[in-house]
Amino acid sequence: MNEIAMAIAVVKSITLVLGGGITYIAVKAYRRTGEKSLRALSIGFGIITLGAAISGIANQLFSVSLEIGVFVNSIFVACGLAVILYSLYIQ
């Protein structure tokens, strides 16, 4: 594994831990309050975190090219951000 691949694996791991933590806290807040916006917020962060995990696993285990991995991750980030934007809009 070269230096760039190792750096990507480290950053993806950090993203997975932080995103998982944010998603967990948002789910706990939703369960406590029942607010639909918090449910949507947790789904949005979950989508972003899932995209980071999937693209990293695909790159490391299945030899998917870096370009395809970045593209897939970008799709997940865009979808997750759209859900987060929606969570901020709903009452």
Score class of each variant (00 low, 15 high):
residue 76 F to M: 01
residue 18 L to T: 13
residue 25 I to D: 04
residue 84 I to W: 01
residue 21 G to V: 09
residue 12 K to S: 13
residue 8 I to S: 02
residue 45 F to Q: 00
residue 24 Y to D: 11
residue 21 G to F: 04
residue 88 L to C: 12
residue 24 Y to M: 15
residue 86 Y to I: 04
residue 2 N to M: 05
residue 23 T to D: 10
residue 39 R to E: 12
residue 37 S to I: 04
residue 21 G to S: 04
residue 15 T to R: 10
residue 10 V to F: 11
residue 87 S to R: 00
residue 65 S to A: 09
residue 18 L to K: 07
residue 78 A to Q: 08
residue 66 L to V: 13
residue 54 I to S: 06
residue 67 E to T: 15
residue 27 V to I: 14
residue 91 Q to W: 10
residue 32 R to T: 11
residue 78 A to K: 00
residue 64 V to D: 00
residue 35 E to K: 11
residue 5 A to N: 15
residue 50 L to I: 04
residue 56 G to C: 00
residue 15 T to L: 14
residue 86 Y to R: 06
residue 48 I to A: 07
residue 16 L to F: 11
residue 27 V to C: 04
residue 88 L to A: 14
residue 51 G to P: 00
residue 23 T to C: 11
residue 61 L to R: 11
residue 59 N to Q: 15
residue 44 G to T: 02
residue 54 I to H: 02
residue 53 A to C: 09
residue 34 G to K: 06
residue 7 A to F: 07
residue 90 I to S: 05
residue 80 G to A: 00
residue 1 M to E: 10
residue 43 I to S: 04
residue 47 I to M: 03
residue 51 G to V: 05
residue 23 T to V: 07
residue 56 G to P: 03
residue 46 G to H: 03
residue 3 E to V: 11
residue 66 L to C: 14
residue 3 E to R: 10
residue 3 E to L: 13
residue 90 I to M: 10
residue 32 R to M: 09
residue 16 L to C: 13
residue 58 A to N: 10
residue 60 Q to K: 15
residue 10 V to A: 11
